[in-house]
Amino acid sequence: MLNLPKKVTIIEVGPRDGLQNEKLFVPTEIKKQFISKLKKAGLKEMELTSFVSPKWVPQMADAAEITADCLDADSLNIVLAPNRNGINRVYAANCHAVAVFVGVSNSFNLKNINKSTQDSMAELKPIIHELKEKNYFVRACISTAFYCPYEGKIAETETLRLCREFVEAGVDELSVADTIGMAAPNEAYSLFSTLTEQFTDILLTAHFHDTRKLGLANIFASLQAGISRFDTSAGGLGGCPFAPGASGNTATEDVVYMLERMGIDTGIDLDKLMEAIEVVRPHLSREIDSGYYRLHTKS
């Protein structure tokens, strides 16, 4: 007997994680239209942008304007902030949901934000406490939870240890990521089964990249493990500047199609989702290659 939920929550990460590695700068007005169309398609939780240094991630240089113009009372609008400078910029905005991130792998963390995992956590814990005192929603993104491009396989115990640190620090959500798309379904099932057993009072979200075309298989395995929240990206956009070889996130449209075919409600309108993708597609340096998109555009 399959263990399937009646409803799944999709967290759309296309505007942030999806575009951060895009070679061409996507015009700010196009990003706003993209976000607006995604919300009209029924996506109620979304990573809007990232308050990172434009020197390192030029695509996010318009974060303040995106945040100012794209907030709404009916959605969970999340912005990513990697450090104190980013958090201070969040405070200057009117957004009350923040994502912080740390890699389980020290090597990845050093390449990404020039800090070890331990040093990153030492900096973040008082920030998380401060955010919670101000009634912010805090999402912790756990990078390289399965494999690292520099260190190889990550021990499940190490990922669980970092997740526990974040939970004890008071975050509201853990987004646990297969950053380079190397996890196999049995590994996804193992980790997420343990997470659902150990952390019963926190939102648990699975985040898979589709580098080796295992994204949907890993999502299915995670469903069996009791997960009902998934990060996905419209058009399969994405990649990581600090994870060589990482391709895009699992495509929102492919995930929605699979889930709806299985009788699982997502609340997302696929036709309207395609309209959102068409807004951003002409401004990308790559083709949209998700299965649902290819079939939809041929029909």
Rank of each mutant, 00 (worst) to 15 (best):
Y293L: 10
G152D: 04
A122N: 10
P149A: 12
R89L: 15
N112L: 04
M46D: 08
N88H: 08
W56F: 06
V167S: 00
E133P: 06
Q118T: 07
Q198W: 15
E130A: 12
A64D: 13
F220K: 13
I277E: 09
N77K: 12
E45Q: 14
L110E: 08
P27I: 10
V171M: 02
T200G: 13
G239L: 08
D254H: 02
S50P: 07
N21A: 13
G263A: 13
N109S: 07
C148I: 06
N21P: 00
H96W: 12
R89G: 12
I35G: 07
F25W: 12
D210C: 14
D254Y: 06
T250P: 01
A93P: 11
V279I: 06
R281T: 07
E287W: 09
K272A: 15
A234I: 15
F137R: 04
C95I: 11
T179W: 02
H283T: 03
G42Q: 14
D74E: 12
F230A: 10
L174F: 09
I180M: 07
G239F: 01
K40A: 06
A155K: 08
C148W: 04
L19Y: 11
G170K: 00
F137E: 01
A206E: 03
N112A: 10
P5R: 08
Y293S: 05
L270D: 06
D210K: 04
K213M: 13
D265Y: 15
R16Q: 03
I288W: 04
N77S: 11
A246P: 02
V102H: 03
E151N: 01
A188G: 07
G238Y: 15
T179H: 05
